[in-house]
Simulated scan of single mutants.
Amino acid sequence: MGGDHAPSEIVAGAIRAQEELGVEVILVGDTQAIEASLKEHKSPCQLEIAPAEDVIAMEEEPLVAIKRKPKASINVAMDLVKTKQAQAVVSAGHSGAAMAAALLRLGRLKGIDRPAIGAMFPTLIAGKPVIILDVGANVDCRPKYLEQFAVMGTVYSQYVLGIPEPKVGLLNIGEEDCKGNDLAIRTHQLLQDNPRVAFLGNAEGRDVLSGQFDVIVCDGFVGNILLKFAEAVGEIVLQILREELPQGLHGQLGTAILKPNLKRIKQRIDHAEHGGGLLLGVDGVCIISHGSSQAPSIFNAIRLAKEAIDNQVLERIQSTEIKRAKQLDGINQPSEVKPSEDTTG
């Protein structure tokens, strides 16, 4: 029920996902509105509907609304995951409400202090995206949060994107170790000392899309600005291409010849092709999609959720953090004092 085009476009994307990805989709929300959308799209497949009485509007304060509306669609969806009736939640609604519901209903993974939204960005190297996190879940961060983001991004890159040793960068205003604010300098040291991540160093703004890094970490304030700026640039590039292609017969012929190339360009820079951001660090797979998401974006968001489930991303993050916690406990425990061989009193 969330997003600018709900429920029609959400339903259309869900229908396509169920048909093409072989997943079972549960549509959560107003039963009558959803049934009307299903009839509109003349779906040949049956999609289950989970009724929800309320919807959280974009202008509502997330935490207050989540508690005041226990039967809101996002709460009902999270409860389906909590009770193992579903394996993932996809929402194009209020992102703050989605995060609050995930934290309250599902809880954090053991060893994770703050969940982060990871978003995929295209790079200059075809077929090699970079995951940026956090892009909006935490506007204020501590160094250890960013260290955890780096670990979660590394696990995701390894097991979903198939990168054996993901290269990690810290978004900063310069390459030198001493550059940046207090958060950046302290985080740099933590990442440098962490054996679980292949830390390459600071990443400047111009490095984000270079393909040099596989994972880039930053706080949610900076990350969200970066995400929306990148989305706007992508839309501008696509619009310029539409405007600058020749008109008339010659233009139609040229467009027909270039159609495969134009399609690949769109796939690389259009944010709809990535579906949304994965909320890493909560005890359930949650995809937060853009509020303007239409059917293709919802389809890709469900695909993203399926990839996270198939590759056991949550279990692998949990395993990594538990191992780390045990290592730290071992370091902090006092060593056993062996009795002296000299037994004389």
Results as ranks from 00 to 15, higher is better:
Pro164His: 07
Lys167Asp: 00
Val168Leu: 05
Val168Asp: 04
Leu170Met: 11
Leu170Phe: 09
Leu170Tyr: 06
Leu171Lys: 00
Leu171Ser: 01
Asn172Val: 03
Ile173Gln: 09
Ile173Phe: 09
Glu175Val: 04
Glu175Trp: 01
Glu176Met: 08
Cys178His: 15
Lys179Pro: 00
Gly180Tyr: 04
Asp182Ser: 11
Leu183Glu: 02
Ala184Asn: 03
Ile185Asn: 15
Arg186Lys: 14
Thr187Val: 11
Thr187Leu: 11
His188Phe: 13
Gln189Cys: 05
Leu190His: 03
Leu191Lys: 00
Leu191Ala: 05
Gln192Tyr: 14
Gln192Phe: 15
Gln192Cys: 08
Gln192His: 14
Asn194Leu: 13
Phe199Gly: 02
Ala203Phe: 05
Ala203Asp: 01
Ala203Pro: 04
Glu204Arg: 03
Gly205Asn: 06
Gly205Asp: 11
Gly205His: 07
Gly205Pro: 10
Asp207Met: 06
Asp207Cys: 01
Val208Glu: 05
Val208Asn: 02
Val208Cys: 08
Leu209Gln: 08
Gly211Ser: 12
Ile216Met: 10
Ile216Ser: 07
Ile216Thr: 12
Val217Lys: 02
Val217Asp: 03
Asp219Trp: 06
Gly220Tyr: 01
Gly223Pro: 08
Ile225His: 04
Ile225Leu: 12
Leu226Phe: 07
Leu227Met: 03
Lys228Thr: 06
Phe229Arg: 06
Gly234His: 06
Glu235Ser: 13
Ile240Ala: 15
Leu241Asn: 12
Leu241Met: 13
Glu244Gln: 15
Glu244Val: 14
Pro246Tyr: 12
Gly248Gln: 12
Leu249Trp: 10
His250Pro: 00
Leu253Met: 13
Gly254Val: 01
Gly254Phe: 10
Thr255Phe: 11
Thr255Val: 00
Ala256Met: 11
Ala256Pro: 03
Ala256Cys: 07
Ala256Lys: 09
Ile257His: 07
Ile257Val: 14
Leu258Asp: 11
Lys259Phe: 03
Lys259Arg: 15
Lys259Asp: 02
Pro260Gly: 13
Leu262Tyr: 09
Leu262Asp: 12
Leu262His: 07
Lys263Ala: 15
Arg264Pro: 04
Lys266Glu: 15
Lys266Gln: 15
Lys266Val: 05
Arg268Met: 11
Ile269Arg: 06
Ile269Trp: 03
Asp270Leu: 01
Asp270Gln: 08
Asp270Ser: 14
His271Asn: 01
Gly277Gln: 04
Leu279Gln: 05
Leu280Gln: 13
Gly281Lys: 01
Gly281Asn: 07
Val282Thr: 09
Asp283Val: 02
Cys286Lys: 04
Ile287Ser: 02
Ile287Glu: 05
Ile287Leu: 14
Ile288Lys: 00
Ser289Val: 12
Ser289Asp: 12
His290Leu: 15
Ser293Tyr: 05
Gln294Met: 15
Gln294Phe: 14
Gln294Asp: 13
